[in-house]
Amino acid sequence: MNVFRLTGDLSHLAAIIILLLKIWKSRSCAGISGKSQILFALVFTTRYLDLLTSFISLYNTSMKIIYVGCAYATVYLIYAKFRATYDGNHDTFRVEFLVVPVGGLAFLVNHDFSPLEILWTFSIYLESVAILPQLFMISKTGEAETITTHYLFCLGVYRALYLFNWIWRFYFEGFFDMIAIVAGVVQTILYCDFFYLYITKVLKGKKLSLPA
C-alpha cells in the first residue's frame, strides 16, 4: 500500500458517496446514466467474487463490500426509488457494444484461463469503458450539473492516482500487471477531455455546458 493507492481508493470512495448523496438529497437522478451505474455494479460483482474465496486484509474486504453495496444502492435509487426522475430518453448508449467485445477480449487476453480469472479480467476491461454511457449522455444533453462533474472528477482522479501507484509498484516492488495497466491507461485517457472542461469551467464557477 502506497500513498497513491490509498488516495486513489479514497477518491473512488468519495465519487461513489457523492453520487449516492446527490441522488438521495435531491431525490432525483436526472442527468445520471443508469446504464453506467449498472455497468459499475457488474464490474464490482465480477471482480470481487474473490471475497468468497480469499482474504487479503480487513481494509481490502471492507472496501470491496462498501463499493459493491453502494453500487447496488445507486442502481436501486435510479431504477426503483426515483425511477420517475430517471432520464431514460437521453441514456441511449448501446451497452451491448461494450459488454460483448469486452467479454470476448477477457476470454482471449487474460493471465489464466479459469472462470474467476476471466471474470476478474472482464471487470478490469469493463471498468475502463463503463463511464462511456455517462459521458455520452452529457454530450447528448450538452450539460451536466456541477455535483455530477465533481463525481466524474473524483472517478477520473482515482484512475490517474492508480497509474502513479503502478509506477511506484514497478520501481519499488518490481511488480506490474499489464492487463490492469493498459486498461487503466485507456480509462484515464477517456477522462482527459472531461478534466479539461472541469478545470477551465467548473473550477471557475461556471456550469459545465458544451457548445451546441
Partner: peptide, 10 residues
Amino acid sequence: GPQKSTKDEL
C-alpha cells in the same frame, strides 16, 4: 510461471 493479477488492489 504466468503473471499474477493484482488481486490486492480494488
